[in-house]
């Protein structure tokens, strides 16, 4: 497997705070990795740097073998990286309908009208929200909003889907349904996943490997089974305990 994302020595400051402190982080093609970390450990910033929304002052980030950013310079803009993201607050555009949200999300790809229409229909269909196409986000339930965010992300046909704790407010049944859907789509479409979460259920349903971020560094990264068998960091140990309780 080749590395889809490969970062070396990322250093990033927000204000006075050193958020990423020489982060090395790899994601392989088709890998599905959970990113654990306590609050403020730099998880969201790492995702934003990978997406190209922030730049690391130092270090190099390569995507699909191409250098995407290097020492504070962005070489590949966000929308050319083949990355989609589901935000913590979903970031749905409130005044647009479900279909329009997806359509606007496609505007960076410069597709023909028919092509984008086909993509929209396909994405809505994949996420089971075709019948909601004319509704606005404010009128959707929590689960429907998640599906819309997912549909918008998948319509881009990304190589990597990043999920920044997007399933927070959902009930267990809906959450499992959405996770199930993402897992199926991943199997079908073959994209890689980075999932930021604190929830063992989410990790277990979707991921096959796990990385732990502490104080802006990756302190542990391995296959899920390995970590469950032999957790190193405090966070990984707590996670494994919680997972076993859950079972």
């Amino acid at each position: 497997m080749t590395a889809l994302v490969r970062s070396r020595g990322l250093i990033c400051r927000l204000g006075n705070q050193l958020v990423l402190n020489g982060t090395d982080f790899d994601v392989a093609d088709h890998e599905s990795i959970a990113l654990l970390g306590s609050s403020g450990s730099g998880k969201s910033t790492l995702l934003r740097v990978i997406a190209g929304l922030e730049t690391a002052r130092q270090g190099e980030l390569a995507i699909d073998g191409k250098v995407a950013s290097h020492d504070g310079r962005i070489l590949i803009p966000p929308h050319r990286r083949g990355i989609a993201m589901m935000f913590q607050d979903l970031a749905l555009w409130p005044n647009l309908t479900v279909a329009e949200n997806v359509r606007l999300g496609l505007s960076g790809l410069r597709l023909s009208r028919d092509q984008s229409q086909a993509r929209i229909e396909h994405a809505l269909d994949l996420c089971d929200i075709s019948e909601l196409a004319d509704r606005r986000p404010g009128t959707l339930s929590g689960g429907q909003q998640q599906r819309l965010a997912l549909a918008r992300a998948l319509a881009m046909r990304p190589k990597l889907l990043m999920l920044d704790e997007p399933l927070g407010g959902l009930d267990l049944i809906t959450k499992q349904a959405v996770l199930q859907q993402i897992a199926e789509l991943k199997a079908e479409l073959g994209f890689a996943v980075i999932l930021v979460t604190h929830d063992p259920v989410e990790v277990y349903s979707l991921c096959n490997s796990l990385a732990v971020l502490e104080n802006g560094r990756i302190v542990e990264q391995a296959a899920l089974d390995e970590i469950v068998a032999n957790p190193q960091s405090a966070l990984a140990k707590a996670f494994v305990r919680a997972m076993q309780c859950g079972e």
């Binding site: 190209g52 929304l53 929308h79 935000f87 913590q88 970031a91 005044n95 999300g105 505007s107």
Partner: peptide, 20 residues
């Protein structure tokens, strides 16, 4: 995050301004 989403999806600034 609306802006972030727009950047990831490559929505041009003009279009984002006009549409959202």
């Amino acid at each position: 995050s609306w802006r972030d989403a727009a950047r990831i999806h490559g929505v041009s600034r003009v279009r984002m301004f006009v549409r959202v």
